[in-house]
């Protein structure tokens, strides 16, 4: 029950944020968040920002993705 998409906050005005989701700009309500800043990566559901996507995890993931090829060789070594 969760069509929620990740995006980046581009602009904030009053209690609304403009979130860029893959080249589409969506206006989302910030009422469910304590604070939102431009540049935050967020999750949007039914027109509301429901959470921030933790930047640390995202960066680590990017790094891990690039190191991925080690994994299949690790599996193969062991067969």
């Amino acid at each position: 029950m969760c069509v929620a998409v990740p995006g980046e906050v581009i602009k904030i005005h009053d209690s609304k944020a403009e979130v860029r989701i893959r080249k589409v700009l969506l206006e989302a309500d910030c009422a469910l968040m304590e604070s939102i800043s431009v540049g935050d990566r967020v999750l949007v559901h039914a027109g509301f920002i429901i959470e921030k996507i933790s930047r640390g995890e995202s960066d680590q993931m990017m790094e891990d993705l690039e190191n991925y090829s080690n994994i299949t060789s690790a599996w193969e070594d062991d067969s």
């Binding site: 998409v5 990740p6 893959r22 995202s58 993931m61 990017m62 891990d64 993705l65 690039e66 190191n67 991925y68 090829s69 080690n70 994994i71 299949t72 690790a74 062991d78």
Partner: peptide, 25 residues
């Protein structure tokens, strides 16, 4: 011990340039 990285694309609809890496995951 084994190294195991969950491969989690950042965007809902997939990231084409990572597709080969995603398949590995």
């Amino acid at each position: 011990p084994r190294s195991m990285n969950p491969c989690l694309p950042c965007s809902h609809s997939g990231m084409n340039k990572f597709t080969p890496l995603v398949r590995l995951g």
